[in-house]
Simulated assay, not measured.
Amino acid sequence: MITKTTMAMFGIAASGLLAGCTETLDSQQIKTGGISATLEAIAESASSTTVRATLKAGGDESNTYVILSAGDRISATVDGEAVAMSAESSGVYEASVDVGAGGTEIKVLLDRDDEDDDATNNVGTLPDPFDLEALPREPVPRGEDLTIAWSPSASGDDMVIDVKGDCIFSKTFDVGGDPGTYTIGAGALEATSSREPESCDVDVVIRRSRNGTTDNNLDPESSFELSQVRGGRFTSAP
């Protein structure tokens, strides 16, 4: 079962992992058009979704995070119900809702207190949920194929698989469409040490994602991704 700890390992939940030299900027010091919003709706199950907004100044690659102040506020509307988003860290705002069904409409609304433009037209729908089939209980040698399967498939959305473990190099596999299975070929998972090959637990996170749209009043680098996310674990062996 996927957990927020596992999600954080792959950068899916990065609210507490702001790396490098970071700066903050009060929202009263920046126009809406200068705010780059990275918006995410992450459904961990068919009945649980986290809506996250990461606000930056200077583009998505910037390390300057925008802190909402005065009357500036951000919220979400999930399936027509308004939900307040609270600060999880500097420039990162979240809300959790007990909804995760496919087709659920999610909006993120940035309301400005002054005469600057609001950005309330950020909208998208969740992909359909899916179940990840059980991964092997016995250790899987890295010299053998590993097939990962999920259902239902053929959703029309893109699937991505991330793998991470202490004894292997982390990898991301772009599945290409939604075929229901993906085989990680023999040798595709590389050991971090050739001198002393080890076995270790490997976390697998699979995402079904689609893009929403962002308000034209925001920085053009803004984005909105909506995903169904599931996870499992197996043991990788030499």
Rank of each mutant, 00 (worst) to 15 (best):
M1I: 02
M1T: 05
M7Y: 08
M9K: 11
F10I: 01
F10C: 00
F10K: 01
F10W: 06
I12R: 11
G16Y: 10
L17T: 15
G20W: 14
T22W: 11
T22R: 10
T22I: 14
T22H: 09
E23D: 14
E23C: 04
D26L: 10
S27T: 01
Q29Y: 09
I30K: 04
T32L: 09
S36L: 01
A37Y: 04
A37F: 06
L39W: 02
E40S: 06
A41H: 03
A41M: 04
A41E: 04
S45K: 03
S45W: 04
A46D: 13
A46T: 06
S48N: 05
T50A: 03
T50G: 02
A53Y: 08
A53R: 07
L55A: 01
G59W: 13
D60V: 15
D60R: 15
E61K: 14
S62R: 07
N63R: 15
T64E: 15
V66H: 06
L68A: 03
L68F: 10
A70H: 15
A70M: 13
D72K: 05
R73K: 15
I74Y: 05
A76H: 10
D79K: 09
D79M: 02
D79F: 01
E81I: 10
A84K: 14
A84L: 13
M85H: 02
E88M: 08
S89F: 03
S89W: 03
Y93A: 01
Y93P: 00
A95M: 09
V97E: 08
D98V: 02
G102A: 10
E105S: 12
K107C: 00
L109E: 15
L110H: 00
D118M: 01
D118G: 00
A119P: 00
A119Y: 02
T120I: 08
T120Y: 01
N121C: 00
N122Y: 03
V123A: 08
L126W: 10
P127C: 03
D128A: 09
P129W: 07
P129H: 08
L132Q: 07
L132V: 05
E133T: 03
L135N: 03
E138R: 14
E138F: 08
P139D: 13
V140G: 04
R142Y: 14
T147H: 12
I148S: 03
A149F: 07
A149M: 11
P152L: 05
S153H: 11
G156M: 10
D157L: 01
D157K: 07
M159E: 09
I161L: 13
G165V: 03
I168C: 07
K171T: 02
K171N: 11
F173P: 00
D174T: 12
D174P: 04
G176S: 07
G177T: 08
Y182G: 01
Y182W: 15
Y182R: 09
A188C: 05
L189T: 09
A191Y: 11
S193N: 14
S193K: 11
S194Y: 06
S194N: 08
E198C: 12
D201N: 08
V205A: 07
I206G: 00
R208F: 07
N211D: 14
T213K: 12
T213S: 14
T214C: 11
T214Y: 07
D215P: 00
L218I: 10
L218N: 04
L218H: 12
D219E: 11
D219F: 02
S222H: 09
S223I: 05
G231A: 11
F234N: 00
S236E: 08
S236Q: 13
A237W: 13
P238V: 10
